[in-house]
Simulated scan of single mutants.
Amino acid sequence: MCGLCAALGGSRYWTDAAGSDAFTRNGGKVTLRAERERRVAFLNRVLDHYGLTVHDWGGNSYVLSDRRGRRENVYNLEGIWSLVDRMAATDCDPLDPALLSRLGGAS
Rank of each mutant, 00 (worst) to 15 (best):
G58N: 11
N44T: 01
A88Q: 07
G69S: 12
V30T: 13
L4N: 05
S61K: 11
R25D: 05
T90S: 14
G104R: 10
D16K: 02
D56V: 04
F42A: 13
N60T: 06
L8Q: 10
G104D: 12
R71P: 06
S61M: 10
Y50M: 01
N73T: 15
V30C: 10
L103S: 06
A34H: 14
V54R: 03
D66N: 15
A34C: 11
Y50K: 02
G28K: 14
A17C: 03
H49F: 02
D21F: 09
A41C: 06
N73L: 15
L47D: 04
F42L: 09
N76R: 11
Y75I: 06
A106P: 00
L47Y: 03
L32R: 15
G58Y: 08
D66V: 05
T31H: 11
E35P: 09
W81H: 08
H49Y: 01
G69W: 12
G69N: 11
T31P: 15
G19D: 04
S101F: 00
E78Y: 11
M87Y: 12
R102H: 01
L95H: 15
S20T: 03
G28T: 06
N44E: 03
R68T: 15
G59Q: 05
S65E: 12
R67Q: 14
L103I: 01
V46C: 02
L47E: 03
T53A: 13
R38I: 01
M1V: 08
R71Y: 06
T24K: 15
R45Q: 07
A106C: 03
L52S: 06
V46K: 00
D21P: 15
R70T: 05
E37N: 14
W14V: 02
T53F: 02
Y75E: 12
D48M: 00
G19R: 04
Y75T: 09
L8K: 06
L52Q: 07
D16E: 07
G27T: 05
Y62I: 02
S101G: 09
S20L: 13
E78C: 08
K29M: 10
H49C: 01
